[in-house]
C-alpha cells in the first residue's frame, strides 16, 4: 500500500447548516514514499482541505484515507502516530509563533512528543540548520524580532523538529521576496534529496512546480482534474488554461515558438532544456 492513500474521499464543511459546503468530492489518490508531489489548483479547489486529511486534522465525511497503513476514517485511529509522521506547514506558518525565544518555539513540537532534553536540543539545532537559520545566533532571540522570511523559516523548523517522514507545505514561499523564495524552496529540495522526505507542495506558481516536483496533481472544484508526471501535465496547456491555470513561463515560450512554426519540443521545464531544444530546432533548419 502507498504511504498515503485516499479512496473516494469526500469532505463537507458545516454539514447540516445553512452554510454547508462540499470541499472534496470523491478524491482517489495515492502517494508513494519518497516522491515529491506538487498539488495545484485554483483557489477554493480543495487543496488545503485535502492536505488536512493527511494528518487527521480533518476526517473524511465519506470515503477513506490511509496514512502509513492507519485508517483515518475510523474515529479511534491512532492520530498521534500519524501527526508524528506527517508534518504539516500551513500557509503563513509564521502566524503560529508564540514562544519567547526561537529555540523554545522550535522545541514546542519535540516537547509535546515528550522527548529528553538533549534529544530536544539536538533536534532544534538540526531543524534550524536545515532551514538555514544559525541556532547560536538566533536561538535566544524573540521570534517576533525577526524579519518575515526568518520567521517563516523558524516556523518551518518547528515542524521539521518533529522529524516527520512526510512534509506537507501549503504555499511555503507565498509573500516572500524572490531571494527568500529561492532559499526556502532550495531547502525543501535539499530535504527531499538528502533526507529522503516525501514532500507534498501546494503552490500557485507553475515555475516552482516545474523546478521542484516529480509529479503533479491538479485539483478543480473538489476533484482531481489531472494527475501525472510533470512533463505530461504541462504538455496539456489548454486543459490547464480551461481551469484557470497556466504553464511555466519557459514552457509557454516553447509553445509560442511552435505556434510561429519553430519545431521545438513543447515539454520543456528549465532554461537549459529550452536552450537545447531551440539549438536542436535551429540546427535542423
Amino acid at each position: 500500500m502507498a504511504l498515503i492513500e485516499c479512496v473516494d474521499l469526500t469532505h463537507v464543511y458545516l454539514r447540516g447548516t445553512p452554510l454547508e459546503a462540499v470541499a472534496l468530492r470523491g478524491v482517489t489518490l495515492s502517494i508513494d514514499a519518497g516522491t515529491f508531489v506538487g498539488l495545484l489548483g485554483p483557489t477554493g479547489s480543495g487543496k488545503s482541505t485535502l492536505i488536512q486529511h493527511f494528518n487527521a486534522l480533518l476526517r473524511p465525511t465519506s470515503g477513506t484515507v490511509h496514512v502509513a497503513g492507519i485508517d483515518l476514517s475510523q474515529p479511534r485511529a491512532d492520530v498521534k502516530t500519524v501527526r508524528r509522521q506527517v508534518g504539516l506547514v500551513f500557509q503563513y506558518p509564521e502566524h503560529q509563533l508564540f514562544e519567547e525565544t526561537v529555540f523554545d518555539d522550535v522545541a514546542y513540537g519535540p516537547r509535546n512528543l515528550g522527548l529528553a532534553t538533549e534529544e530536544i536540543q539536538d533536534r532544534v539545532q538540526d531543524a534550524l540548520r536545515l532551514v538555514g537559520v544559525d541556532p547560536d545566533a538566533f536561538g535566544r532571540r524573540s521570534p517576533f524580532s525577526l524579519s518575515g522570511g526568518e520567521m517563516r523559516r523558524v516556523a518551518i523548523a518547528g515542524v521539521l523538529a518533529m522529524q516527520p517522514q512526510v512534509l506537507v507545505l501549503d504555499e511555503p514561499a507565498a509573500g516572500l521576496d524572490p531571494q527568500g523564495k529561492q532559499e526556502i524552496l532550495g531547502q525543501i529540495r535539499t530535504l527531499h534529496r538528502e533526507r529522503g522526505l516525501t514532500v507534498i507542495l501546494i503552490t500557485h506558481s507553475m515555475d516552482e512546480a516545474a523546478q521542484l516536483v516529480d509529479r503533479i496533481v491538479v485539483m478543480n472544484r473538489g476533484q482531481v482534474a489531472m494527475d501525472g508526471p510533470v512533463r505530461g501535465i504541462f504538455r496539456r496547456a489548454d486543459e490547464l488554461a480551461s481551469i484557470g491555470l497556466g504553464v511555466p513561463a519557459i514552457t509557454d515560450l516553447m509553445l509560442r515558438l511552435r505556434r510561429r512554426g519553430v519545431a521545438v519540443r513543447p515539454d520543456v521545464l528549465s532554461l537549459e532544456e529550452a536552450r537545447a531544444a531551440i539549438w536542436e530546432a535551429v540546427r535542423w533548419n
Binding site: L57, R83, P93, G109, V159
Partner: peptide, 29 residues
C-alpha cells in the same frame, strides 16, 4: 489550533491547569 495540533499539541488532556496552559500557544498568536 490546527497548526499547533500538527505540532503535537493536545488541548483535551490533563487537569484544568494543564489545559489552560495548553491554550497559551493559541492565545499568543
Amino acid at each position: 489550533i490546527k497548526a499547533q495540533m500538527a505540532r503535537g499539541a493536545q488541548f483535551d488532556q490533563g487537569n484544568v491547569l494543564r489545559r489552560a496552559r495548553a491554550l497559551v500557544p493559541v492565545l499568543v498568536p
